[in-house]
Design a protein around this nucleic acid. Structure first.
Length: 214
DNA sequence: ACATTAAGTGATT
DNA sequence: AATCACTTAATGT
């Protein structure tokens, strides 16, 4: 297990004012989570806002049948837009957040999240920006779900995955991809095969290599 | 060598 | 696009 040094002040020093950085250090809690660990569980109340210091957190929606749909990733220097809406309305989380890699998270207690909105303009700006951004990402995924066919969604998914990991190699089984897109393994295998025949990617066991022309 | 898991494929709904 | 049933290929023990 490898964690980056939690030099979070440097990540946020450009966005937050010094006073806020100091309070951040004093009042929030640093958490290390390993890859695959669940950070936000469905049905549990959200009592803190997680800032991602290093690593990636995958946020997805899961319905009653256990079907999963990827919503978005939260990267270094970002936070989860849904976490705000959850604690502000004191509702329980309807989504799940899982660490995609070993990650370091700064948990900011809900209480101070609220105070800082009045106290620090940069905090307010940060919060508004992530909510706004999250909103457009979700609108985008509604668009994908409603109007795009599976093959387009697969391509979008692969590209996003590759961008998230910074690699053209994707280490996932067809089953895992199917789970994330809310479809079954056979469909994924067939679509991937088609893409391979079109020279868009190469298939291996547990691994997919994306080619430039995808 | 054998068992297990991932991937490929035709046929059916 | 989903499901079933089956085959083939890769990997672990």
């Amino acid at each position: 297990m490898s964690y980056e040094t939690p030099e979070y002040s440097s990540i946020f020093s450009s966005v937050f004012e010094p006073d806020l950085l100091a309070e951040l250090e004093a009042k929030s809690m640093l958490m290390k989570v390993s890859s695959g660990e669940t950070i936000m569980r469905i049905g549990s109340p959200v009592r803190a806002v997680p800032l991602v210091i290093s690593g990636i957190v995958k946020v997805s929606l899961i319905n009653d049948d256990g079907q999963e749909i990827l919503l978005y990733y939260v990267r270094k220097g970002e936070t989860c837009p849904m976490s705000f809406t959850c604690w502000m309305t004191t509702k329980v989380s309807s989504i799940e957040g899982v660490a995609e890699e070993d990650s370091v998270i700064l948990a900011v207690p809900g209480k101070v999240v609220d105070e800082w909105l009045l106290k620090y303009p940069t905090w307010k700006k940060f919060v508004m920006a992530t909510i706004l951004d999250g909103f457009s990402v979700v609108i985008k995924s509604i668009d994908d779900l409603a109007f795009k066919k599976m093959d387009d969604r697969l391509i979008i998914y692969l590209k996003e995955k590759s961008k998230a990991t910074g690699s053209s190699l994707i280490n996932l089984t067809h089953q895992q991809i199917g789970d994330e897109l809310g479809t079954n393994r056979v469909v994924v295998s067939r679509l991937l095969k088609k893409l391979e025949n079109d020279n868009k990617l190469l298939l291996y066991r547990n691994q997919i290599k994306l080619l430039r022309n995808l």
